[in-house]
Amino acid sequence: MHSTIKVEYLGTVRLLIKKKFDIYTFTVNPTLGLLVQEIGGRYGKIIGQECKKQVFIICEPKSDRGIFYKLPKDANILLKQGSVVKILNNITGG
C-alpha cells in the first residue's frame, strides 16, 4: 500500500522552486525528515537545506487543525496517508 502526501509550498520555498504544490508517494508512511529528504532529492541540495529552515504545518485527513512542526526536533513525526504538509517560512516580526 502506498502513502500519498500533498506538499504545499509557501514562502521562500515556493519562490525558489516556482511551484505551489507537489504530490509525493511513498511505499510506507514517511517521517517528516524523510519527506524533506525527498524534496531535497527532487529539487536539489540548496532547496533541501532551505526546507530545513522552514516551519511545517501538518494537516491530517479529516482534521480541521494543522499542527506546526520544526526540524530537526520533529524529524521523526510520522505522516499519515493523505496528509497535507504546508511548508512555510518562520513566523517572526515585521
Binding site: L10, G11, T12, L15, V55, L88, N89, N90, I91, G94
Partner: peptide
C-alpha cells in the same frame, strides 16, 4: 532568504496559517 525574497509580506500566509 525569506526576508530577501518576501520582506515582511511573508507574514500574510504565515499569520493566516497560524
Amino acid at each position: 532568504q525569506t526576508r530577501l525574497l518576501l520582506g515582511t509580506t511573508k507574514l500574510v500566509h504565515a499569520l493566516n496559517e497560524a
